[in-house]
Design a protein around this nucleic acid. Sequence first.
DNA 1: AACGAGAGAGTTTTT
DNA 2: CTCTCTCGTT
Length: 717
Amino acid sequence: MPINYDTDLNPAQAAAVLHESGPLLVIAGAGSGKTRTIVYRLARLVEQGTQPENILLLTFTRKASQEMLARASHLLHRGLSQASGGTFHSFAYSQLRRFANFAGYGNGFTIMDRSDATGLVKEARERLALGKGDKAFPKRDTLLEIVSKARNKERDVDQVVAAEYIHLLPYAEDLSRIAGEYAALKKAHALLDYDDLLFELERLLVAEPQVLAQVTARWRHVMVDEYQDTNLVQARLVKLLAGEERNVCAVGDDAQSIYAFRGANVANILAFGQTFPGAAIVRLEQNYRSTQPILDLTNRILENAREKYDKHLFTERADGALPEVVRTISDASQARAVMEKLSELRRDHALHEIAVLFRAGFQSYPLELELNKLGVPFQKFGGIRFTEAAHIKDVLAFLRLAVNPADLSAWRRALELVRGIGPKTALAVAQAAITGDGATLAKHAKKRPALAEILALIERLRAERPEPRRALDLAIGFYTPILMELHPDDHPRRQQGLDELMGLSAPYRDLESFLADVSLENPGEEEQAGREDALVLSTIHSAKGLEWPAVMIIDLVEDRFPSRRALQKPEDLDEERRLMYVACTRARDRLVLFVPESIYIRHLERHEPVRPSPFVLELPRECYQEVREGFGGRLSAVPGPGERPARLDASLAPRRDEPGQSATPVNGAAARMGFCTHKIYGRGKIIEHIAPDKYRVNFQNFGLKVIVAQYLEMEDA
DNA sequence: AACGAGAGAGTTTTT
DNA sequence: CTCTCTCGTT
């Protein structure tokens, strides 16, 4: 069955999809069917005779590219496994590995994740003996931040310091030296950080014309998603990859650029026409995601930007609930108000159709507490990475050493596991191992039997080169006793994490690929497909490109959103504004903004009043329905000017009346809330009383159910 | 040199 | 809460 492009796509989308060859830029407004357009274009290329192996799709996450390829494959009724898809970083890695000999990495190399990189920066600082005992000296996280920012923006360290870290100006010279030492250490130990992957690929393609020729011959069509969030080196890579055929399709939205902090440069998308003269430009402006009331609000957000955006988003979804602004007494009661709102939204939506978004990871803590208390399942995105947990890194260090014998970070990690070996000895032993000083190694090994064991293990991994699963098995076998000793209290939890890691490794056949993916992708995200119904908690950055029927955004107060650190420079404030725009445009049907009137200040140990976020203050009153938290945590609508006081706003009223079920949860029943038992479902936590005679219960193994009271056996508190 | 206790500080966003 | 750093002891 041929694909019907005319009926499946609107004219603008069809224009982008049917564009034959040569450079193409698609400016895709939020919710304008961007993914659909990419998917259809992929299908179209193949239908027109392009071989899948000639296609390269670069996206922000690997998951995104896999999904797009899967959808295209579904349209075509044929597999597309030969097509390449992934992030810039994973693509760069694959090419560096493929051409390792040309690139100078014939002896293997390792990708450092953030914690490796901070460790190495600290090492650089210590080697230079800088900032000893100086409390004001920037700490390792800041050091790496500055070094990486300079790299990403391709500016000198002192320029970055002068522009963004004025208070560190006295240290500018020290910081430059640290950056230099850090680079030297990486080089000496075949370690590449995220930035290096991109720069090294560029260096390879520029220095080796035959490599470039091979690469451009292989990928004759290059598609790049989220082009507004590419940095300078990524743009140059796209130019290189385009080759002479220039079959480049870049897709993005300048109004959604939210990664300037890490060097993304909106100029890339704005200058696409100059970079690729003669490029076709298509704008997608019809929004298929949100209702008009939501778009009215998001349009307002953009209109107030310092820098004007040429956006005319429109939709045919004219009706829908007004967005709501909920004012709560404090950030603590905000968490309860979110629960209250959640139980209302649950009448129309499954849990996984609802998302709570926030500016920074820690802002969801109070809410997580509340969710745990009530036993509501949730999944958090953008928090700590599974693979950065200490025990995971310990085990992976052994595999890394099998791949890259010079990996200093891994050596230190592995060696410090031995009792009696601290930083100094570890460094000495590591140096000996790297330089092949057998005498020194033997001397130390004699003193510490466990050290001999480690060396033997690494030797074995290196000689046998087992599959990742087997290698992990060996490493975990060695590590388990150490884990028990190190974490007597919570070793079962960590053991579980190791099992999970084993599971992740199963599909891989070689160590290098497994290790690269562990550093370059967040494996936690892979599992969400198999995950059952759970509320989504996410940072706004991690929510990019996603959508939900109902979206709640919390902590819309000054200093938190926009973040305090963004209030220095006007361009930073604009980025915060775009972030707010991205957050609100995730919503399909319902959008709820939470504005606490006070927040807890840790060091003062009390709540302090706060001003609402300017992004809320500037919204005209007719854009939203105001809701206020009253005594006992009840939410009630506030009539707008000229409106007759209403008991309940339409959006607060039940949408669907279920027989025998009252619309509003009875908070007074809170006293009765505890645990209960059901004959079939077993033990569960009572979440909500639904008058007159039902309860919403979260069962340990069956999830949320509404049950008539007579079938429940109450437990006394 | 290594280790453990204990205080302390601090949390933007991510490949 | 959860690393991270410091300090005193072995």
